[in-house]
Each structure stands twice: as structure tokens, then as C-alpha cells.
Design a binder for these strands. Structure first.
Lengths: 246, 246
DNA sequence: GACAGATCCGAACGGTCGTACTATTTTTCA
DNA sequence: TGAAAAATAGTACGACCGTTCGGATCTGTC
């Protein structure tokens, strides 16, 4: 990544800068070799720190993993969700979410793709705080999509009886299928197909003259559209990790 | 079988039985903790073998991983593809493929789900023979789906200008979305939503009165429908299955 | 029942893992 | 500027990693 160029104006305390550099590098590493694959020794070597010096920034490796994913979550909100919220309510916002999501997946700062997608399959059977954190973040993300779909219904873009949770799972599937075809199979058409699949999904959600929904009863939960804001840390305790709030 | 020579049922050699037991256990383990997470020591302890004794069955850990995935591929063909081939050509066979695929994903012998799906995200950025093997198997699988869709076109079940590769990627996405919702998010409705998504996909492939295909040019490749039969091992050598000399 | 190979074990190797403890340096701020 | 605080280095630990090797034990065949 680009050198820090931190000449003068070290507003941020030294430790925090190092810490962020560690997390950024750990994150980039994790996208390639997996969350569990990130190693203290490897990190220290890459960043020219001693193992113990690096380790001192986190009480444990598990904490490092969670902080790393917290940074990923923050970045994702910043570069996917927030910009999409600037788009008009309804279908345009939904499209913005989808498009920025795939763009984020291929962001140069994430050489191995979205860490949450990878972690979904890496940690799905390994209980613990890290898994919990991933689940929380992905729940927020899916709620964001479902909420945006719900708004599209309110705006009259989508038909009234649309199952928004179903829409969200379908959407997630398109994204996962895209990553699969793109990263693993190296299919150059993966992106075009993902776009077409999304178009078809939106198209089906629009058409109200369709026989479509076999289930007559739509979900009834209030389901706040602002799920993004409701985002919470995995750790129940106030935490305040090392005193250094931001 | 040829009974003329009447060889007295050559009970499978001892070593091979052990070997299969090792692979079966390694496979079950890998579905939970990942392909790279399987460890010689852990395997030996579980199976009450010595590390070296176990290791002697494979020239390297990499070979163990590949053999393990080969077993998984064989099982998948046996319990998903072959039975589905018994279903009538066209849409029924496609449905059988999908249904058996999800059933296989939740088979009790795979406590952590389909190893190939997990490996898709675990190994997508780690080049090497293991990744190559996974890619090969998944390519065969996707070709199987695309081939079945092509047959459905021939049978008149699906519209003539259907993009079968697109269909396959969409299908893969539904499966991945299912695993994501089911295993990670523990959503009890995951399966029902996957079924609905598949129904919608098939439905869209059927309707020929739809404006549907924006792309006028359908793919033109011959694309043998019998992709299943074309399946090849990753290793270029003939590799007689049970020969297993070293 | 003996012999040959297949099968398995025990010990050991050099590494890396996460983590703990104690110095030593560097930053921060009165 | 100097002392308190924070950041980093050094060293060590036990555990486990994949792998090697020589020898013990078992299996199947004549």
C-alpha cells in the first residue's frame, strides 16, 4: 500500500498509527490466506517489527483478528453503504448498493476480495467471538439490502408482496456466485453474468402482473431500514479496547 | 463380474482399508476446519495411529489433501450426479441435480458441508496443485449443470436462446447463498428460500414469451452434455485408481 | 512355517506458532 | 528539559507443525 507520507502533524499518537498499519496489512493478508492464516510472525516480519512489539498492541491473536475485521467492516460501510445512501430511495439505491458491493470486492486494498465472504465459509463451523463478529456484520449487511428492498416497495418500485428477506438472500447468492466464478474459476464473464442476474432479480421484483409470490403472507417484522446505524460490536462489554477511542 | 477364475474374494488389502479410513476422517474434518486445517497429528490421534505411520500412506501432506478431495469428488458424483442422470432428460434431471446437490451439502458424512464450496473460498488465492484439483472438479460440476440445462433446451423445456453458462453461475450462486444463510447465519428458512430461488430461475428459463434475453447472441460452443463422463483427474498421469503404487 | 514385503511405530529434526516476562528505547507532556 | 508513559525489542517457553529414518511387527504367499 502507499507509504504513509506522515511528515508532520502527528495528531494521532504514535501507537495508533502503528496499530492501524498492522491492521491494514493484516487485513490485506487475510483476504488472501484467510483470517486464521494470518500469523503474528509473518505480520511482524512484513512490517519490520518484533513479534513481541507487534503483539503488545493486542492482548491476543483473537483480538487482533476481531480488530482487523472491525476495520474491514468500517471500510465497507464507508465505501459501500454510505455512498449508496446518497442515491435516491428505492431501486436506484439498491442498484448502487449492489454495484458498490462488487466494486469493493475487487478493491485493490483487498487483494483477495471481501474478507467477510471468505470468512463466511472459513468460520461457519468454528464457534467463537470471531465468528460471532462476522455473523453480526453480515447480518447488518443483509438487513441493509433487505431494508433497501423494503424501501423500494414503499416507493412503488417493487411489488407490494415482495419477500425482502428472500430478495436479500438471492442477492447474496449472486455476489457469492460472482466471487466463485471470478476468483476461483477466473471466468472473465463473471461480472457480466452477475450484472445480468441482478437485473433479472430486480426485474422479477418489479413485475406485479406476475403470478410470482406463492406465499401470500409477506413478512411482518418492522425491520428498521436503518440497519446500518444499528450496527453494534460483537463484544457485549463496553470494551473501549485500550482506552483509545476514536 | 468374471467368475471364471473364481479368485477367492481378495479382501481389500490392509493398507488400503486404513488409507480409506484416514481419508474419510480427513474429509469429515476438512469440512469443519478447512482443507488446510487438517493436520497429520490430529488425524493420527483421532485414528489412534502414529504420525509417521499415518504419514507413510501419503508421500506428503499435499498428496493427502488431494486424495481426500478425490474421495469427496467421487462421493459427490456417486450420490449427486449419477442418481440425477436416472431422471428424465431436461428440467426433471436439472431439478434432481439441484435437489441432490443440496442434500449432499447437508449429508451427515459431511458435518461441515460440501468441501468444494468451502475450498472455493479457502484456496481461491493460493495457487498450487490442490487449488488446481478443486478448480477441475468444480469446472466439471458447473459443466454438468450447464450441460443439463442445454439438454432442457433441446427437449423444449427451456427457451432456445437461454444462456446455459449464465444459468449455471446463477445456480451456483443459489447454492452458495443457501450455504451462507444456512451454515453461517443459521437461518431456518434458508432451504425454503433456496428452493424458491431455484423455482424462479427455472421459471425464467422456461418462459419464451418474455422479453428476457437482452443479449441476442446465445453461446455457440458445442459443449458436450456428457461433461460428467469427461471428468478427468487433476494429475496428468493415468493414475490407476486402486493401483496406488508410489 | 519361513520368507518378503507391506505396514506401522518411536524418536528426532528444524521450524513456526501464540504468548509471557523483562529490558530498553521512544513519545508525550508538564 | 526531564520525568512519566507508551511503544518496542529481546528472550524464552511449551506446543504443534511436516517430514525423515531405522527398526519392529504384522500379512499374505509359497
Amino acid at each position: 500500500m502507499a507509504s504513509s507520507t506522515a511528515i508532520r502533524a502527528p495528531r494521532t499518537p504514535k501507537g495508533e498509527r502503528t496499530r492501524d498499519a498492522i491492521l491494514a496489512h493484516a487485513l490485506a493478508l487475510a483476504t488472501r490466506i484467510g483470517v486464521e492464516g494470518v500469523t503474528i510472525g509473518r505480520l511482524a516480519e512484513d512490517l519490520k517489527l518484533s513479534k513481541s512489539g507487534l503483539f503488545a498492541h493486542f492482548r491476543s491473536k483473537e483480538a487482533l483478528q476481531i480488530e482487523m475485521l472491525r476495520m474491514a467492516g468500517g471500510r465497507m460501510i464507508e465505501s459501500v453503504v454510505k455512498p449508496a445512501l446518497a442515491a435516491p430511495r428505492g431501486e436506484p439505491r439498491l442498484r448502487a448498493l449492489f454495484e458498490r458491493w462488487l466494486a469493493w470486492e475487487q478493491s485493490p486494498s483487498l487483494p483477495g476480495g471481501c474478507p467477510f465472504m471468505a470468512a463466511s465459509f472459513e468460520l461457519d463451523d468454528r464457534p467463537g467471538p470471531v465468528r460471532d463478529f462476522v455473523v453480526q456484520n453480515l447480518r447488518d449487511w443483509i438487513d441493509t439490502i433487505a431494508g433497501a428492498a423494503r424501501i423500494a416497495v414503499q416507493e412503488g418500485h417493487f411489488r407490494a408482496d415482495l419477500d425482502c428477506e428472500q430478495f436479500a438472500q438471492d442477492c447474496q447468492g449472486i455476489g457469492l456466485g460472482f466471487v466463485h466464478a471470478s476468483r476461483l474459476m477466473r471466468d472473465p464473464q463473471a461480472r457480466a453474468r452477475a450484472d445480468r442476474a441482478f437485473d433479472a432479480l430486480v426485474s422479477a421484483a418489479r413485475a406485479s402482473t406476475d403470478r410470482a409470490a406463492s406465499r401470500a403472507a409477506p413478512d411482518r417484522r418492522p425491520a428498521s431500514p436503518a440497519a446500518v446505524v444499528n450496527r453494534r460490536d460483537a463484544s457485549p462489554a463496553p470494551a473501549a479496547a485500550r482506552g483509545r477511542r476514536r
